[in-house]
Amino acid sequence: MEEAAELGSYLPLSFKSPQEQEYIAFLWDAFETNYTHGKYQFAFLAYHMLTMSFIYFNIWQIKQTEPGDFAKGLIGFGKDVEKNLLEASTPFVFSTVNERTILRFLKLIACDNGQIGTYAKLVDDRNDTAHPNGNIFFSTQAALDAKITEILRVVDEIQTHSRPVIERCYREFLLRSADAEEREYPDPADQIREVLIHGKYLSQRDIDICLAFDIESLNEHEGIEEIKALHEALAEEYKTDVPSGAA
């Protein structure tokens, strides 16, 4: 159970709507309740849904930060699906697309076909588990724990590939927020919380990447002092004592 909780550090710290927050909390509760009561098959289903939510959030960050690449990734989709995804206002719109198909977007962060094939195997495991086929694939805690270890390896691998997207997202945020009189919130902490963390669906792992950003690379920018103030506000509010393997 303790290892399984690591997935939480890859999920957003805040959401755009209470419904999204409630949904993730519901999945965690479903996982923990079934795990505690030995219903490992159903615990896996909830954990898989949390994992797919993580993937949706990563693809959403690509959509926001690299809209041109995201649009290219829609080649081959039907016009209605393409329109729906381009106009999406929430990451959960991706759930309308077949899970195996949505994994194709991970090519935009340099995941190769072999890696995506491995991720798709998790979808196959979910499909096998969710159908009334007379089999209990996760009948023991050890079996589920082994699968959770595998899932967390996949999640961390995807997070590592997402690093350039997060770095660009943070750089653009800093540059756009460098003028305290022009940005949404004059106070650096408010700007960080509302526009970056909340607006971009950032997880603690994403924040760890932001904290490692080379601020000195922006020294020539006229708003460097305010940029440093923003970065310091991020560190003060969100820096953790435990180093992240993804950072």
Rank of each mutant, 00 (worst) to 15 (best):
K79D: 13
F44K: 06
A43Y: 04
P67E: 03
F70N: 10
G73Q: 02
L85N: 00
V81N: 11
L86D: 07
F42V: 15
P67K: 03
K79T: 14
L45G: 07
F42Q: 11
D69C: 10
S53H: 10
K72P: 03
L74N: 00
Y40P: 02
G38A: 02
L85E: 04
P67R: 07
Y56R: 05
Y40H: 07
N34D: 12
F54T: 00
T65P: 06
E82N: 15
F77R: 03
K39L: 12
W28N: 04
F77Q: 03
Y35S: 06
G73V: 02
F44S: 04
W28T: 08
W28F: 09
K83W: 13
I62Y: 00
N34F: 12
F42A: 13
L86A: 01
L50I: 06
L50R: 02
Y40A: 08
F54C: 07
A30C: 12
Y47Q: 03
L45Y: 05
T33M: 11
K83P: 08
A46Y: 00
F31Y: 11
T36Y: 08
Q41S: 09
I55G: 04
K79W: 14
K72R: 15
T33P: 10
Y56V: 01
M49R: 15
F31D: 02
H37P: 12
Q61D: 07
L27R: 13
I62N: 02
N34T: 15
L74Q: 04
A30F: 11
Y35E: 04
Q64T: 09
A71T: 11
F77D: 11
F70A: 05
K72G: 02
A30G: 11
T65I: 00
K83S: 14
S53E: 10
Q61K: 13
G76Q: 00
